[in-house]
Write a protein that binds this DNA or RNA. Sequence first.
DNA 1: CTTTTGTAAATTGTAAACAGGCTTCATGAT
DNA 2: ATCATGAAGCCTGTTTACAATTTACAAAAG
Lengths: 235, 235
Amino acid sequence: MEDNSIDQPVQPRRRRVLMDDVVDAIREAILSGKLAAGTRLIEDDLAQMLDVSRGPIRQALFKLQQEGLVVHETHRGATVATTSPDDVAEIYSLRTALERLAIEQACKKATASDLAPLEAILLLFQSTPRENITRKKVAEFDIDFHDALFRAAHHRRLYRAWEGLRSQVMVFLLLRDALPDDYLDSWHRDHANLVATVRAGDVAAATAAIEEHIGGAHARLLVMLAKDSGHSTTD
Amino acid sequence: MEDNSIDQPVQPRRRRVLMDDVVDAIREAILSGKLAAGTRLIEDDLAQMLDVSRGPIRQALFKLQQEGLVVHETHRGATVATTSPDDVAEIYSLRTALERLAIEQACKKATASDLAPLEAILLLFQSTPRENITRKKVAEFDIDFHDALFRAAHHRRLYRAWEGLRSQVMVFLLLRDALPDDYLDSWHRDHANLVATVRAGDVAAATAAIEEHIGGAHARLLVMLAKDSGHSTTD
DNA sequence: CTTTTGTAAATTGTAAACAGGCTTCATGAT
DNA sequence: ATCATGAAGCCTGTTTACAATTTACAAAAG
């Protein structure tokens, strides 16, 4: 038997199916603002736009509801989820609980190969010219980092709970307007510190660090929302 | 405008659709053991059994996957989820994180009408003759109580995360063999104590109580699984 | 005898047509 | 003028039919 060095993934990577493309397309449209909050998502229209039948559309809308980007009501259809100030509190309180567990589990169970992705992101971030780092790029780095952290926890159910929140966090990260000058520095320092606590396996330090990390993000978001209050929230 | 005292629910209760019946039927079959862990769930077979087409079956299987009772693989179909010792750790660690947040939020936000369901369950439990309380009944009381606690937290996203775990917890509650004689007493005392801490709004006491509560349940489960180890776990 | 390869059956993914509920707007009554 | 009533159109829920993929098994090659 030949050793499989070419077919890279040891885990056979489940085939991609139409629904996956539809999910990506609609998620992208929502996150980029092409589909505003509250917009009705009519299955037939989406089916024609994306050139598939209503079946995959239906499944995709169901999945996006899981992600919290879409709200579905029986016999009344799906709409792009709207976000109120209460939702911000919900998202960040739940996120804190999940990330606390994640970093705790990561401290206990993460191996070197689990930490590699985290450090790779930090390196990639640092090696990217500052002028090339857009707000969207920062948001993607951020989500990717925390996603890797959740993966490092080796906790399937926790990861799935995070999947139900991830896109909603992304919405807020993309909302940010101009970032403070020293933000990129502090971003790297903050996340590098998280990796350090995990590497050290110091649960107490790690949970404290993550709570401050998420708390800080929440606080900055509230400040930002307060500045242009009543702009793109509930309505 | 007439006041609506007859059409009871203030919230318009979304209509029940075929998928809901299918979900209930399959969930019931899994929880009752009629569908053993690992069993393949073939859409056509289920469709014939339940006398609906494959459409609602497909949606139901997706939803049951959300609940963690079913595992779905692309082009390979759905199977009843199997449970390993690792899964027990996952379920209880995540449950602890979620319930901690739930009781904390309940302390802050629960009103008298939120606490009423909790107390109603305690009363119903106490007023039920001991000989009528089967293991299944205890499990249902238990799930209903904690479900009411999550509702009292007024946190939609937290409740949805709990929905993704609830049935999996139920699986373990139903596994219990004969309960200790004083279990029913301690059950009531323990849960009444949780309500008391919420009513008092004492976050510190409440989180401590819930952690001990879930921790105790986890510990008892591990003891039980150790007794007949290698019986009905991974298979 | 073991391994490989090809073919057929089984089963899921997708499309398209049908049925029924919800919304809207016109019409009429109070 | 305001509110009730009802019919038409839109849209979702469901069914049925078709396409594509996986799995199982058998035949052939080593």
